[in-house]
Amino acid sequence: KWEEIAERLREEFNINPEEAREAVEKAGGNEEEARRIVKK
């Protein structure tokens, strides 16, 4: 599940997989929260 979210974030925000994974981890697997983290 987290991998899927990280993949979507990576494609959408054009970030590297590591950044995407970190955002999802910080968000506890919550996609909306992960998006907010990435946008900062």
Rank of each mutant, 00 (worst) to 15 (best):
R35D: 01
K40H: 12
N30F: 06
E33G: 06
E22T: 08
A20T: 02
N30K: 05
P17H: 13
E22K: 08
F13G: 02
E3W: 09
W2P: 04
R21T: 09
E7R: 12
A27Q: 02
R36Q: 13
I5K: 03
A6D: 02
E12P: 00
I15K: 02
N16G: 13
V38K: 01
R8Y: 05
R8E: 02
K39V: 13
E33L: 11
I37L: 11
E19C: 07
E31P: 06
R36A: 14
E22Y: 12
R36M: 10
L9Q: 02
E25K: 13
E31D: 03
E22R: 14
W2I: 07
E22V: 12
P17N: 12
K40A: 15
N14M: 13
L9K: 01
E32P: 12
E18H: 10
A20Q: 02
A6L: 09
A27I: 00
P17I: 15
E12V: 06
K26S: 10
A23Q: 03
G29F: 05
A34K: 00
I37W: 07
E3I: 09
V24K: 01
E12Y: 07
K40S: 10
A20S: 06
E7K: 14
A23R: 01
V24R: 00
E7D: 12
I5V: 09
E32H: 08
K26L: 10
E7T: 12
V24P: 00
L9E: 00
R21I: 10
L9P: 01
R10I: 14
K1E: 14
P17G: 12
A34I: 00
L9D: 01
E32T: 12
K40N: 15
A27Y: 01
A6V: 15
E31N: 02
R10M: 12
V24W: 04
N16W: 06
I37E: 08
N30G: 04
A27H: 01
K39T: 12
V24M: 06
E18Y: 12
F13R: 01
E11W: 14
N30T: 03
I37R: 06
K1T: 15
E11D: 11
P17F: 15
A20L: 05
N14G: 15
E25G: 06
A34S: 04
N14K: 12
V38E: 02
K1N: 14
A23E: 02
I37K: 05
